[in-house]
């Protein structure tokens, strides 16, 4: 079964050789991973310490019978149902700055953490370890509507998606979270295809 027959011509072969690390498998990371698997990315490193909770199901790519399972294991099952041949490296742990050097197999990092403090140290650690590699981050995805405020900003090897203002205390809606996740995935695919 060729699920990539409708892909953009020439993209699939390039993406199948690529490895992407996804730091955080919640609202952003789980949906980014699904988009990357559907696009044909060959290998994913999935990193998350958490288990699926009922209140994740309003926006994260999990289902009722995933509740209580480690997120990386549940997400791996869903990704293999899309693309059985996908290579998955599951790291069920809390990522620490000292662990970033161990992500050297990744061509690109997707930052999908919850906490802004963690976003900052991850960006700093990645840029220190791998200054020539892309990192696709996110900032601001909460609330409802205001689609026109979500944008992509770039500086060097950092590309960031979001509205850069909203805070999760506003509440989280799948439609808006998925908008940002889809933008991250789209930018990641663009980088992976266009970089030789």
């Amino acid at each position: 079964m060729d699920i990539f027959a409708r892909n953009v011509p020439g993209s699939t072969a390039l993406l199948q050789r690529r490895t992407v690390a996804v730091a955080g498998c919640g609202g952003l990371g789980s949906n980014v991973a699904v988009a990357l698997a559907r696009a044909g990315v060959g290998h994913l490193i999935l990193i998350d310490h958490d288990v699926v909770a009922p209140d994740n199901l309003n926006r994260q790519h999990f289902f009722r019978d995933d509740v209580g399972r480690p997120k990386v294991a549940a997400l791996a099952d869903h990704l293999r149902r899309i693309q059985p041949a996908i290579g998955l490296d599951l790291r069920e742990r809390t990522l620490q700055p000292a662990d970033v050097a161990a992500l050297g197999a990744a061509d690109l990092l997707v930052e999908a953490f919850d906490r802004a403090e963690a976003k900052r140290w991850l960006l700093e650690a990645w840029c220190r370890e791998f200054p020539e590699r892309w990192v696709i981050a996110a900032s601001g995805l909460a609330g409802i509507g205001r689609s026109e405020e979500i944008r992509v900003r770039r500086s060097g090897r950092i590309i960031m998606c979001g509205d850069f203002a909203s805070d999760q205390t506003e509440g989280l809606c799948a439609a808006r979270v998925l908008l940002v996740a889809a933008m991250q995935a789209n930018v990641a695919i663009e980088c992976l295809v266009e970089e030789p």
């Binding site: 990371g29 953490f113 919850d114 981050a137 601001g140 909460a142 960031m160 805070d167 205390t169």
Partner: peptide, 10 residues
Amino acid sequence: VTVFHLAHGG
């Protein structure tokens, strides 16, 4: 100079 504001949520 680029300044990115980092908001909670992911």
